Simulated assay, not measured.
Amino acid sequence: MAWASFLMVNCPGPKENILRNKSFRFAVRVVGVHQHLTTAKREYVLAKQLLRCGTSVGAMIREAEHAESKADFIHKLAIAQKEINEALYWLELLEATDYLTPPQAQSLRADATELLKLLISSLKTAKTVSRH
């Protein structure tokens, strides 16, 4: 079984990969936030933390597409789950310290939360499938 095909199970389009697409769009948004924080707010440390974890989610999902085994596939998705959870932390902190407005932070958190839920669901399914 190609692990990438597992990611496409229950997706509406014939070749649409929801996790891949949403994680990429989230990464693009995070890059934009990083640019905003470093140019307009002159905030570099928190911005870089968000950039690292926010862009690594999609990278780990891409790596999972070519996993060497079921265990490797699950491991890579688990790392993506940890990274999106970390991104949620940095978004909360950026809002609490007034680097992001509540609407900006809420919009990004909504996308991150959706990704987290998709990853949790995918991991549960992958673990169930791997037991059989």
Rank of each mutant, 00 (worst) to 15 (best):
V28G: 00
A2C: 05
A64F: 06
V28M: 11
W3Y: 15
S121V: 01
K22E: 14
R62V: 13
N10M: 05
A64Q: 02
L50F: 04
A105W: 03
L100A: 08
H34W: 13
G54I: 04
Y44L: 06
I18W: 03
A27M: 06
H36F: 15
M60G: 00
S23L: 10
L19G: 02
Q81T: 06
F6K: 12
S130K: 15
A27G: 13
D111K: 07
A47D: 02
I84E: 00
A105Y: 03
E43Y: 01
A110R: 10
L118Q: 06
S69T: 13
E95Y: 02
A112H: 00
E83K: 05
T39R: 12
A78C: 11
W3C: 01
L51F: 14
S107Y: 11
K82G: 14
L7I: 07
N17F: 11
A47L: 05
W3G: 01
H75M: 10
A126Q: 03
F73R: 02
I120W: 00
N21T: 14
G58H: 06
D98C: 07
A126L: 07
L94Y: 02
L108D: 01
K82M: 09
L19P: 01
W3Q: 04
L91W: 07
R109Y: 03
T113K: 12
L46I: 10
Y44T: 05
K82D: 09
G13V: 00
S56P: 02
K41T: 01
R42V: 05
A126K: 03
E92M: 05
A110V: 06
H75W: 08
T113C: 06
W3L: 12
M60K: 08
V129W: 09
L123G: 03
E95K: 14
R29V: 00
Q49M: 07
A59E: 14
V31I: 15
E114N: 09
I120C: 10
M1N: 09
S56N: 13
V33M: 09
S56K: 01
P102S: 09
V33P: 00
H66Q: 13
L77Y: 01
A47T: 04
